[in-house]
């Protein structure tokens, strides 16, 4: 076995050490945010907090937990992520299959795929987009968060390339049995595509969780904002130079610790979901199991 050789063992030690170091480097900023969220406001505003809270306080979490708008925004985000991802997944899965055929099998697939790519590269911009949204009656509707971004070229092409890796023999066998494309897709491709579906799901979820611009512009009422939009309105630094600022307002704007708590809570759900999706990436899950 290769992993029993001395050379590989030495490599393994270095490899593990290197990756752990990288992992630590990646987790440091979040620990900092967490430390700030548990510090006193005075220490946070003075930028005294490193990786450990100073003048420990849970004030920020109390404020966050009693903020109904914040809590509701998490719910909206969960809703948009679940529904949005479901729609995207369905559309992507459906579109990727015919695209994965050769031009000789499915005449026209190349035109379709260029239509996808072209739509990714060129955009008409905000104004015409807004007009379309408005004419469709989507302004101030929950659906404006899910529908416009439902088709994502990147994901379709990714999925298509995963499909291409599936041996042709499987499909041919299904056709032999008299299955049509739809049945082949859902009974044969679906179960063996779990790693790629997990990938697409994850990308789509992260996209929905992080999107803020649509909420800001197409929803009128901040009570209906998804979390990312809410956070954006909190985190961004206001241009004070032309505001009639007063200490009272500055106090409200510069809630460093509350922001930190909200950032942390905001990232938590998507971090919790990740390990669940991870198990689909496990080796041997895919084609190996199909052979049985």
């Amino acid at each position: 076995m290769y992993y029993k050789t001395t050379g590989y063992r030495i490599f393994n030690v270095f490899n593990v050490a290197l990756l752990i170091l990288l992992a630590v480097m990646c987790v440091v900023p979040l620990i900092h945010v967490l430390a700030v969220s548990f510090s006193s406001k005075a220490a946070a505003d003075a930028n005294l907090v490193g990786l450990w809270p100073i003048q420990f306080s849970v004030e920020a979490y109390k404020k966050t937990m009693f903020n109904p708008v914040f809590l509701h925004s998490i719910w909206i985000s969960v809703l948009r992520t679940v529904i949005g991802t479901a729609i995207t997944l369905f559309l992507t899965f459906l579109a990727a299959y015919p695209l994965s055929k050769e031009e000789s099998v499915f005449k026209g697939r190349t035109i379709y795929s260029w239509l996808f790519v072209f739509s990714m590269v060129f955009t008409g911009g905000l104004v015409p987009f807004y007009i379309v949204i408005q004419k469709l009656g989507l302004i101030d509707s929950f659906w404006v968060l899910v529908l416009p971004g439902a088709v994502n070229t990147f994901l379709v092409i990714l999925m298509m390339n995963f499909f291409r890796g599936i041996p042709k023999e499987l499909e041919e066998a299904a056709f032999m049995d008299g299955a049509g494309p739809f049945r082949t897709l859902f009974t044969m491709y679906l179960p063996i595509s779990m790693p790629s579906i997990a990938t697409i799901t994850l990308f789509s979820m992260v996209f929905h969780w992080n999107s803020w611009f649509d909420g800001l512009l197409y929803l009128n009422n901040s009570n209906q904002f998804p979390l990312a939009t809410f956070l954006q309105t909190v985190i961004i630094q206001q241009d004070m130079s032309s505001m009639s600022a007063s200490p009272k307002e500055m106090e409200l704007i510069s809630q460093t610790t509350v922001k930190a708590a909200q950032i942390f809570i905001g990232a938590a759900p998507i971090l919790i979901v990740y390990p669940f999706l991870q198990k689909f990436f496990v080796k041997g899950m895919t084609l190996g199991s199909v052979k049985e």
Binding site: T123, G124, G125, L126, V127, I131, F154, N210, S211, F213
Partner: peptide, 16 residues
């Protein structure tokens, strides 16, 4: 790319 679209959408503008 999608994130970039946010910016692009702010930048670009037109009217159908």
């Amino acid at each position: 790319r999608i994130a970039a679209v946010l910016l692009t959408t702010m930048l670009t503008a037109g009217s159908l």
